[in-house]
Design a protein around this nucleic acid. Structure first.
Lengths: 343, 343
DNA sequence: TTGAAAGCGCTAACAT
DNA sequence: ATGTTAGCGCTTTCAA
């Protein structure tokens, strides 16, 4: 900019005015400056500008895994709203690792993003307190944060799981298996709660060996599927190994608690002759084209992302009301797999 | 930082040294400074730091649509490599719009990203020349750029389409329909070229009415599917309307040129009694679980992203060799839908 | 080992 | 309508 001013033989501020389309510059002067700008290929350095003005016109998004369709739909929602506000989006993935989440969030803060949308991987967010104290707006997405008072946007996980489980019960299944990811993850815990509530509401007992939680790789989920369907021992070595080692009653239906689990379960079931009823949490792209079609409890991840971003910008607009927790409804989509009667 | 220095009663530079873990500070002093830092909740402002040092330790990624599974896999690849290099990733979507791409790329440049990975939406990238001249590294991804000499990482689109089409031909289909997205998009054009080459290599004629390009919404693709299968007029009002209005021979197989087209075509086919053979470009998550399984020409989007990012960091490491074009192979995955014989 | 001064590229506030 | 000065928060340079 200094170069432009020198080359055009004008003051620095005049160039600044032209670049920022401020009024108070004669057309002739503006034209001359613009000519020099083009000639020199000058582009304003926004980092410097933003350092000076204080705002950064950018928000950060910490996802669990940008490659997961659910995450990318979230991020589409956040991006759309950020864009409406003329804000750039800085994104990173935590790979479901608490340290990485922290590191990433702090890196974004060091860049002085105006606000942060976080899909929590860790269970403690106290590390954001100093940032929040110095003006950072924070919204948690998909899962609530801990150790800091902040807005959260979630799906009605328990309600959705309740509806999905009740749907299976209504189709005659008294024994239903639950397969989820890691039990300490909020969404998994809530969906399990919904499952238990639906069972209890129907007066059905729950055998703890019907509940499988763990990694979502196809091998692990495949083992869980086969165990639940045959009633074998759980192999987890739970608090009561002798009970766990006894065979459980086989289930006739499965509730799979997220998209990756559902996918892995479908793969495991593909080889089997008789298929249990299945309801999955999260919709899948080809769900309607399977046979039978896949019955799911669908979230609206893009709406989740948009809602979180709106909340964030409300806060940036100095909305100082107490932290809110917004819960978005889920929707049961009936397509066939959940209506199979017990074998 | 100034505040910390004042509160600790030390010089500014000492605080800077402690924050950056530079050597040359006595342990006692360092401890005192760190105590004040914690007390005040001080966090270094990286924007200011980077303004001073010149580098920004960040790279930009301009995608077509972050919500598309293909894009998000690309971005996972880019992010992984950026992370290895301690770089933050700034991402945005162009929504397949040239102006938006430009606007986004320039916004990232104004933030002084060190490098830019661009999935081109527009056909002209001259606007990046001034940036490149002042040191920006640029790599195009998925499609080549135009108007600027830069690296590009692509899939072997023509080769993949050739293999897919040849596969259908080998299974006895002389008449094969091609459904793609917009014909000016490089990937579509290349895949169409591959299709034509395979047909010619087999000595088969191509009726232009077997080729449908346009938007990828389910309605448009559905119409194309039905037209190709029944041999109705093309309705495009092409250069030879009278010929176009004559009925064409119905095709017995379809080659769908990207994931969205494949998805839409599958939806359209779901309602139909007799199904044509189908090979799609791009793999889909549930492809193996459909019946018949979906035969595809698979790309490796994560590898595309990683390769592009590696090339970018090579350039940032002052690799000044002439621009390269890297082409990654595709893989035909046989699952059933492409092996259906002609009706 | 420590610190003062200069300056990265820009804009806000105040001249002219 | 245009220019000058100071300073955003940090690092670099050089001096003590």
């Amino acid at each position: 900019m200094k170069d432009v001013a020198a080359a055009a033989g004008v003051g620095l501020k005049t160039v600044s005015r032209v670049v920022n389309k401020e009024s108070g510059v004669s057309p002739a002067m503006a034209a001359r400056v613009r000519a020099v700008i083009d000639e020199l290929g000058f582009r304003r350095n926004d980092s410097a500008r933003l350092l000076r003005t204080g705002s950064t016109a950018s928000v950060g998004l910490v996802l669990e895994d940008i490659g997961d369709p659910f995450s990318s739909a979230l991020s589409r929602g956040v991006e759309a709203v950020a864009r409406e506000h003329g804000c750039l989006l800085l994104t990173g993935s935590s790979a479901e690792d608490a340290d990485r989440e922290r590191e990433l969030a702090l890196a974004l803060c060091a860049r002085r993003v105006d606000g942060l949308v976080v899909v929590p991987a860790g269970g403690d967010h106290e590390y954001l307190l100093p940032e929040a104290a110095s003006g950072l707006a924070v919204v948690f997405l998909d899962r609530p944060g801990a150790g800091i008072e902040a807005d959260a946007v979630l799906s009605d996980n328990a309600g959705g799981a309740r509806a999905g489980t009740a749907h299976l019960i209504a189709h005659g299944h008294p024994r239903i298996g639950f397969i989820g990811d890691l039990p300490h993850i909020h969404t998994c815990a809530e969906r399990l709660r919904g499952y238990r509530e639906a069972m209890r509401a129907a007066g059905l007992p729950v055998d703890e060996r019907w509940i499988a939680t763990g990694p979502t790789d196809p091998a692990t989920v495949g083992r869980a599927v086969r165990r639940l369907l045959t009633g074998g021992p759980d192999g987890n070595g739970g608090p009561d190994p002798t009970a766990a080692e006894r065979a459980a009653e086989p289930v006739t239906a499965l509730f799979t608690a997220n998209n990756r689990v559902t996918l892995a379960a479908l793969q495991a079931l593909a080889g089997l002759p008789a298929r249990p009823a299945l309801v999955g949490f999260d919709d899948l792209e080809l769900a309607a084209l399977l046979s039978p079609g896949l019955t799911v409890v669908a979230q609206d991840p893009e709406a989740l992302g948009r809602t979180a971003a709106r909340l964030l910008f409300d806060r940036l607009g100095h909305d100082t009301s107490p932290p809110r927790r917004v819960e978005l409804p889920t929707r049961l989509i009936v397509r066939g797999s959940g209506e199979v009667p017990p074998a």
